[in-house]
């Protein structure tokens, strides 16, 4: 019976990301169709549809920035968490957990402000800011996932003669995967929204219409940027929801 439920859940879950994705694409390509609505919101402005760049291009850049930051955060976050759960790295566990927490308490705007003088304007500072901001959920969840494994399983694996690498690849990572994936999901979803501030330092992405709207007092632009970022976040989040196993094993 539980298999039937899981199947039904999986069946439903596949069209959810598809619908969100289709809405997102439709909004990117057909924003002009909503001109009447935005004219009503902003009757006095000359233009009510953001036209300085194509929405699809902005979406692509937004995804690129978030994607690169996420890949780097996963590599560093999972790597660090794995390293400090090995016997040799145990001593660094509290340090790494603390560093990751500090990463998240540090506001991304402050990181941007500090990064720009060093890295210059453009895409790089925002990637650094997102990377730091997104590390905590990944590190925390990877640690929780690995530490949460029944100690008997690890004892048996070693007692049977598995090497450290075999234990990690065949036992610890597969068992911790759902928890790690949940951390990546949180990290990426937060960063899709946070990436918008990149527009203030010249990284053009879906934050552009929002920043431009704020600067020029054009609420319609702000709404368009917010709408697209919201749809993107929902699409990506529903993809992760689909990837995640239905329940604890």
């Amino acid at each position: 019976m539980s298999e039937a439920i899981a199947k039904a859940r999986a069946g439903r879950a596949w069209w959810v990301p598809a619908v969100w994705g289709a809405l997102l694409l439709a909004a990117c390509l057909g924003m002009g169709a909503l001109e009447g609505l935005f004219r009503w919101v902003e009757p006095d402005s000359r233009a009510v549809i953001y036209a300085r760049a194509d929405f699809l291009t902005l979406l692509g850049r937004h995804l690129l920035v978030v994607g690169v930051a996420a890949l780097a955060a996963v590599a560093i976050g999972v790597g660090a968490a794995v390293a400090v759960t090995r016997r040799a790295g145990r001593d660094f566990l509290p340090l790494v957990a603390q560093l990751a927490s500090i990463g998240q308490t540090f506001p991304p705007v402050a990181v941007l402000a500090l990064a720009v003088p060093v890295l210059g304007f453009g895409t790089l500072p925002i990637i650094v800011a997102l990377l730091l901001y997104g590390l905590l959920p990944i590190v925390r969840n990877t640690l929780a996932g690995i530490e949460g494994i029944d100690p008997g399983v690890r004892e048996a694996a070693r007692g049977m003669g598995m090497t450290g690498g075999q234990l990690l690849r065949q036992v610890e990572l597969p068992l911790a995967a759902p928890v790690i994936l949940a951390g990546i999901r949180t990290s990426v979803t937060i960063n899709i929204a946070t990436a918008a501030i990149g527009a203030t330092v010249g990284a053009s992405n879906l934050g552009d219409p929002i920043i431009s709207g704020i600067v020029n007092g054009n609420t319609a632009y702000v709404l368009q940027g917010a709408l697209l970022i919201g749809l993107l976040a929902l699409t990506v989040d529903s993809v992760f929801a689909r990837l995640q196993p239905a329940g604890p094993r």
């Binding site: 029944d150 100690p151 694996a157 070693r158 036992v171 094993r249």
Partner: peptide, 29 residues
């Protein structure tokens, strides 16, 4: 590892791998 693979080891909590089937668990060593 060589030493341990030459000896069977059974413990109270069984330590079976929850993500592997019974057959795969038995075939570990």
């Amino acid at each position: 590892e060589t030493l341990r693979r030459r000896m069977g080891y059974a413990i109270q909590s069984t330590g079976l791998f929850p993500h592997w089937t019974v057959a795969r668990n038995i075939g570990l060593v």
